[in-house]
Nucleic acid binder design. Structure first.
Length: 604
RNA sequence: GCGCCCAUAGCACAACUGGAUAGUGCAUCGCCCUUCUAAGGCGAGGGUUUCAGGUUCGAAUCCUGAUGGGCGCACCA
C-alpha cells in the first residue's frame, strides 16, 4: 500500500525540489573539477546544500569550496570562483554569489520558488513523502509498560514519541509495524493478582492488613469489585488461613516485605487452586490491559500487535532461544544458574538467563523476543525505552550478535524521563504506591492535541520539565494552538470565499502564481519547499520534534501573511493565486500535524 | 567507585549534524481590531552557549579535563 503511493514520486527523473537540483549541479561541477585535475579523482566529497538563514545570503548555500580547499591547494574564495564558473546555466537560478569565507550562495528566481506550490497540490497528502526507507520493514516497539496499573504521564512521552516516530518512518518510505510488548508473566504480575485478591477478601468482610509491597492504587479496588460481582464469595478464604505461617511484613519483628509478599503469593496459589488463581490473575491483567488499550486509543496511539510474554513462554520460544545460544557455546553453568557470555560482545559482565531455582530471567524472554522479531522478517527493529533502561542495551545487542544477527538491526531509542512539577515542587511517581498522575488525567485536563504536541516538541534525549499547573492553567499557550489556529484561519477564509460567491479554482490559481511577489508570499513558498527535506532529515535521526519546529515556522509565516494582506479580493487572478498559496499551506499543516498525531481543526 | 545521558536568554526548548550576525514560545515593554477568527501581527530589551584547555579556514556542535544535574550498575521486572 505504502509502496504504491510512492510511485508517482519515484517516477520523476529528477527530484522536483530546488535544493536537490542545486546539489545535482554541484555534483556535476565536482566531476569537472576532477577532469580538470583541480581535485584528485579519488576524492568523493559529500555535496552539502543548505537552506540559508539570512535572506541576504540567497536561498541556498554550499560550503563546497571550503571543504575542498585543502584537496585543491587553493584558498577557499579562489576555488569558489572556479566552481561558480563551472555552474551550468540554469534558468531557475537568478544569480550565484561568493560570500564570507567562501560560501557560494544561490539566489533562485520567483517562478522557481513558487513552482513548489504546483508540486504540492498535485501530491496533496503525499507531499513530503520520501524514500529514505526504501521499502524496508521496521518494527517499532514502544510503551510496553507492565500491565500492573494505568499509564502515567511518564509513559505518555514514550507513547507520543513512539507513535510520531512510526508515522514519520511511514512517510519516509518504511513499512512500519507498531508493537506493544506485554509483560504478562513473572513475579510482578503475581503481586498484582495477590493484591487484587486481598482487596477482594476485604470486600468479603475479612480484616486484611494490606502488605506494604502490594499494589495500592484505587484501580485495584475496582478490579476486586468486579471479581466480587462475578464470583460472589467463591474465592473467599479467612484472613486467618491466608496469613498463617507467612513471614511478617516490613516493620514487624523479623519482618521482610519481599518475603511477606512472596509467601502470600504462594498462599494465594495454594488456597485458590490453579483454576481460580488463574481467574484472579486474568481478571487483573485483562482489566488493566483493556484500560491501557483504551487510554492509548484515546491518545491517538494504536498498535498492530500486542505481543504477550506469556505466549512466548507457552510456545517454548524462550527454551529454543537458550538452546540456540547453548549450541553456539555462549552459555555456561555457574552456581547452579545458566549464564550468557555477554562479555564476549563488550557487555560489562555476563548475565543470568536461568536462575538457580530454575526460573528464567526477564532477560531470557527478551533474548527470545528479539530473536522472534527478526524471525518475523523485519529489516530493522526499533525499541523505545525509558532512559533508566540504558544499561540494558549492551546485553540485548550482545544476544543478537550471539545469534549471528547484525546488532545494528536493532536501534534502541532512549527517552528521558519527564520530571513533573506541581506548585513548583517535584512530584515523585510510583505505580506501586498508587501515587502518580495518570495519562488519562493529563488528557482530560489539557486535551489530547496539547499533550501530544507538548511531549513531542522536545528532543527525546533532552530532559523534560513538565509543570502540570502550567500545562493546565495556561494550555492556550501551548504552541499547538498557534499551528492549529493557522489551519483554522485558512479553512475559514476558503469557506468565506465560497460564501461570497467566489469559487476557488486551484488551476486558475496556479496559472496566476506570478501575481505573488510580496515578501510574505515568497517567504511562504520558501518554507513550503523545505518540508520534504525536513521530513527526510527528521526520519533519518528519529526526531519528530523537527517537524514540530518546522510547523511553528510555517504557521508564523502564515499568520504574518494573514495580517499583511487580504485574500478575498476583487481581482480574480490575485485572489485565486493567494487562495492557492494558502491552501498549499493548509495541506502541509495537515501533513505535518498528522505525523505528530495532532488534529487539524477547521474551526477554533 | 565505574558506566550512560544532559547542561544554550528569567523559564521551557531549537539550532539543517562542523558554517556566516545562536533562534522559537512563554514572561517583560511599546504599537496594531469598523477588515477573511487579536488563540494573531509589527517592534524592543534580554547570551562570554556551565568552566578550562585542545583540534581547524570556522566549534553550542568534535576531543581532553573539571563542575553541576538525571539515570544505571541483581540469580528484580
Amino acid at each position: 500500500m505504502l509502496k504504491i503511493s510512492f510511485l508517482p514520486f519515484l517516477k520523476l527523473k529528477r527530484p522536483p525540489y530546488m535544493k536537490q537540483k542545486i546539489a545535482q549541479i554541484l555534483t556535476d561541477v565536482v566531476q569537472q573539477l576532477k577532469e580538470q585535475g583541480i581535485i584528485p579523482e579519488s576524492l568523493n566529497p559529500r555535496v552539502n546544500v543548505e537552506n540559508t538563514r539570512d535572506k541576504t545570503h540567497g536561498d541556498f548555500a554550499t560550503n563546497l569550496a571550503m571543504m575542498l580547499t585543502k584537496a585543491a591547494g587553493l584558498p577557499p574564495r579562489t576555488l569558489a570562483e572556479k566552481i561558480v564558473a563551472l555552474v551550468a546555466d540554469e534558468p531557475l537560478i537568478e544569480k550565484v554569489e561568493i560570500a564570507g569565507p567562501g560560501f557560494i550562495n544561490f539566489f533562485v528566481n520567483d517562478s522557481a520558488k513558487f513552482s513548489i506550490v504546483k508540486t504540492l497540490l498535485e501530491q496533496n497528502s503525499r507531499f513530503g513523502q520520501c524514500n529514505v526507507g526504501q521499502g524496508r520493514s521496521v518494527l517499532v516497539e514502544f510503551v510496553s509498560a507492565n500491565p500492573t496499573g494505568p499509564l502515567h504521564v511518564g509513559h505518555g512521552r514514550g507513547a507520543a514519541y513512539g507513535a510520531s516516530v512510526a508515522n514519520l518512518l511511514a512517510v519516509a518510505g518504511f513499512k512500519v509495524s507498531k508493537e506493544y510488548y506485554v509483560n504478562d508473566a513473572g513475579r510482578q504480575m503475581d503481586i498484582l493478582a495477590t493484591s487484587v485478591w486481598l482487596r477482594y477478601l476485604s470486600l468479603c468482610g475479612e480484616t486484611i492488613v494490606f502488605p506494604s509491597n502490594a499494589y495500592k492504587g484505587d484501580y485495584i479496588y475496582v478490579i476486586s469489585e468486579s471479581l466480587k460481582t462475578q464470583f460472589g464469595d467463591t474465592l473467599k478464604r479467612t484472613a486467618l488461613e491466608v496469613f498463617a505461617g507467612v513471614t511478617p511484613d516490613e516493620g514487624l519483628e523479623e519482618g521482610d516485605k519481599e518475603k511477606h509478599i512472596d509467601d502470600l503469593i504462594v498462599k494465594a496459589k495454594n488456597l485458590l487452586g490453579a483454576t481460580h488463581y488463574e481467574a484472579v490473575f486474568s481478571a487483573a491483567v485483562d482489566s488493566i490491559l483493556l484500560d491501557i488499550k483504551e487510554d492509548l486509543a484515546g491518545f491517538g496511539v494504536t498498535f498492530d500487535e500486542w505481543f504477550s510474554e506469556r505466549a512466548l513462554m507457552d510456545t517454548g520460544v524462550i527454551d529454543a532461544a537458550i538452546e540456540k545460544l547453548q549450541a553456539a557455546d555462549k552459555i555456561y553453568e555457574k552456581g547452579g544458574a545458566l549464564w550468557f557470555r555477554s562479555t564476549d560482545y563488550g557487555d560489562e559482565k555476563d548475565r543470568v538467563v536461568v536462575r538457580e531455582n530454575g526460573l528464567k530471567t526477564y532477560f531470557a524472554s527478551d533474548i527470545a523476543y528479539h530473536f522472534n522479531k527478526l524471525e518475523r522478517g523485519f529489516d530493522l527493529l526499533i525499541d523505545i525505552w525509558g532512559s533508566d533502561h540504558h544499561g540494558y542495551v549492551p546485553r540485548v545487542k550482545a544476544a543478537m550478535q550471539a545469534m549471528n544477527t547484525d546488532p545494528n538491526a536493532l536501534e534502541v531509542l532512549l527517552v528521558q524521563f519527564a520530571i513533573l512539577y506541581r506548585g513548583g515542587e517535584k512530584l515523585a511517581m510510583s505505580t506501586r504506591s498508587g501515587q502518580f498522575v495518570t495519562l488519562r488525567e493529563l488528557r482530560d485536563e489539557v486535551g489530547c492535541d496539547a499533550a501530544r504536541f507538548f511531549y513531542v516538541q522536545r528532543k527525546s534525549e533532552q530532559h523534560m520539565d513538565f509543570d502540570l499547573d502550567l500545562a493546565v492553567s495556561k494550555s492556550n499557550e501551548n504552541p499547538v494552538y498557534y499551528i492549529q489556529y493557522a489551519h483554522a484561519r485558512i479553512c475559514r477564509v476558503l469557506a468565506l470565499s465560497e460564501e461570497r460567491g467566489y469559487s476557488f479554482d486551484a488551476k486558475a490559481g496556479l496559472a496566476a502564481l506570478s501575481c505573488l511577489n510580496s515578501e510574505q508570499e515568497t517567504h511562504i513558498a520558501t518554507e513550503l519547499a523545505k518540508y520534504p527535506d525536513i521530513v527526510a532529515r527528521a526520519a533519518q535521526v528519529y526526531e519528530p520534534h523537527q517537524i514540530a519546529y518546522y510547523l511553528k515556522d510555517l504557521a508564523h509565516a502564515l499568520h504574518s501573511y494573514y495580517n499583511a494582506s487580504q485574500f478575498i479580493v476583487e481581482e480574480e487572478s490575485v485572489r485565486q493565486a493567494r487562495l492557492t498559496l494558502i491552501s498549499a499551506v493548509k495541506q502541509v499543516l495537515q501533513n505535518g500535524l498528522a505525523i505528530l498525531g495532532v488534529s487539524a481543526p477547521e474551526k477554533m
